[in-house]
Computed example of a mutant assay.
Amino acid sequence: MRVLATIAATALVSFGFAATASAYSFHPRSTSFTGVGSTKLTKGLLSVPCTAHFTGHTDSLGKGYITAASFSGSSACSAIRAAALPWHALATSLHGATVYNAEVTASIFGTCGPSNVPVTVSSTGVITFSNATLKPNCVVSGNVQTTPHVTIVSP
């Protein structure tokens, strides 16, 4: 009997069913969202506080995608450009996620990224970047409120 259970479990993993069933995901699925909030990009001694504007969507599997990003608040903010979009995001725990290959460019900074950025996601749809490092030596922090609220659900 134990042999049959092992074979069945191996077959499920081979076909991806076990991995899919245990994965956290963004909610709601298959929906577009916007995000707006205060962020700060720092490189060396230069720190630029901005208002970030994100547009994205979740797919039917609960994966996230940031498809557009802009920054406002000052001429330095307006000069920051998102690069290598879309950025993919995967939920990693009930309140944690990773945004993959995030990258921005600016004449005052050069290129920051691409880097994988850990974030937290609240039950009210606030995404928090907490002093996340972007290669080679940039740091991003801030809070972005999503509309509709994007949260993480457990398997």
Results as ranks from 00 to 15, higher is better:
M1C: 13
M1R: 13
R2T: 13
A5M: 14
T6F: 11
A8D: 06
A9V: 01
T10Q: 00
L12H: 00
L12R: 00
S14Q: 02
A18L: 02
A19V: 01
A23T: 01
A23L: 03
S25W: 10
P28S: 15
R29I: 11
R29L: 15
S32P: 11
S32Y: 13
S32W: 09
F33V: 03
T34R: 07
T34P: 09
V36W: 06
G37K: 14
T39C: 10
T39R: 10
K40Q: 09
K40S: 07
L41T: 12
L41E: 04
L41F: 14
L45P: 07
L45D: 13
L45K: 13
S47P: 04
S47L: 10
V48D: 01
V48T: 02
C50Y: 02
H53F: 12
T55G: 14
T55W: 13
S60M: 07
S60H: 06
L61Q: 08
I66K: 00
I66H: 03
A68W: 04
A69T: 04
A69K: 02
S74I: 02
S75Y: 10
A76N: 09
A79C: 04
R81T: 13
A82G: 03
A84K: 15
W87F: 05
H95N: 15
H95T: 15
A97G: 00
A97D: 01
E103Y: 09
E103T: 13
V104L: 05
V104S: 07
T105S: 12
F109L: 01
F109Q: 06
T111Q: 06
C112H: 02
G113N: 06
P114E: 05
N116V: 08
V119T: 11
V119P: 06
V119L: 13
T120S: 13
T120L: 08
V121H: 09
S122Y: 09
S122G: 12
T124R: 14
G125H: 02
T128H: 10
F129S: 12
N131I: 06
A132G: 03
K135Q: 15
P136N: 07
P136L: 05
N137A: 11
N137R: 10
C138A: 10
C138N: 10
V140Q: 08
G142C: 08
G142E: 08
N143E: 15
V144I: 15
T146G: 09
T147P: 08
T147N: 15
P148R: 14
T151C: 14
T151S: 12
I152F: 05
